[in-house]
């Protein structure tokens, strides 16, 4: 695997030169949209203040909605055969191309969005019409970032595999995969818990798998770090690896 930071820098520099206008328009639109959304409730007659939940809700919406949309169009060149030809023949490795584009969606966008939200929040806060940006939701935030990392990496795979209509195609494929996984999970559950089933109907309402409550607590202690590891490291690394191989397989 060829990696050169000079080439990664050249790829980023190239993108900023070629896509300067769309990037500028996109940034202005994003700022305008956030300000508009924050300003809109203040026009209501019974407006009191912008609550913490307001900021958190919209932040998550922009992070997941906007971020995944960005992921779906990040390999914009792949829409046409000529674009694919020009981008794939650029003297940079498949990894460097994937890495440079991943940076935008998985690092730059969340950072930019967080910065914008904090700035706009500060503006409304200074006017005395806003609660704090984040409260008890802070605990959930790191899991949401983790989920975004995995969802964004999944979307990157789709953006490489599909040349057109990445969003709708990803939705259909993901829906199908989800359905298959649910069916498999139900069947496994049915097989493991066969004693409690008649046909596909559960005959017991309360099934205690663990006799002692402590055992359940211990299991939670073991599983939580594992789940965190999977969310933050395992899943993204696995998905990036798949994305990398999909990139190496990409043809005109």
């Amino acid at each position: 695997m060829e990696v050169s930071f000079k080439r990664i820098k050249s790829l980023i520099q190239r993108d900023f030169i070629i896509y300067k206008k769309p990037l500028t328009y996109g940034l202005i639109s994003l700022i305008a949209l956030i300000i508009f959304i924050a300003w809109l409730p203040t026009t209501s007659g019974n407006f009191n203040r912008l609550y913490t939940d307001f900021w958190f809700g919209w932040y998550i919406t922009f992070l997941l909605g906007g971020g995944l949309l960005l992921c779906s169009i990040i390999f914009w060149e792949f829409k046409s055969a000529t674009g694919r030809m020009q981008y794939l023949s650029l003297p940079a490795s498949n990894f460097e191309k994937l890495f440079s584009r991943s940076l935008y969606v998985l690092i730059f966008y969340p950072l930019l969005l967080t910065g914008l939200f904090l700035m706009i929040y500060s503006l409304f806060r200074s006017m005395g019409i806003s609660d704090s940006f984040i409260g008890h939701q802070a605990v959930a935030l790191k899991y949401i970032w983790g989920a975004y990392l995995s969802l964004g990496s999944t979307m990157l795979i789709y953006a490489i595999v599909f040349n057109n209509y990445v969003g709708p195609k990803s939705f259909i494929v993901s829906g199908f995969i989800y359905l298959v996984c649910v069916i498999i999970a139900v069947l496994i559950f049915r097989i493991i818990m066969s004693d409690f089933f008649v046909g596909m109907t559960m005959t017991h309402d309360n099934v205690m798998i663990f006799d002692e409550e402590k055992k359940l607590e211990n299991m939670g202690k073991t599983l939580l770090p594992l789940a965190k590891f999977i969310l933050w490291v395992g899943l993204p690394v696995y998905l990036w690896t798949v994305a990398y191989f999909k990139m190496t397989e990409k043809q005109v």
Binding site: E2, S89, P91
Partner: peptide, 12 residues
Amino acid sequence: KRNPNLLEDIFF
């Protein structure tokens, strides 16, 4: 393999 060291010596 689309080796970058080779690609920088090819123009299409």
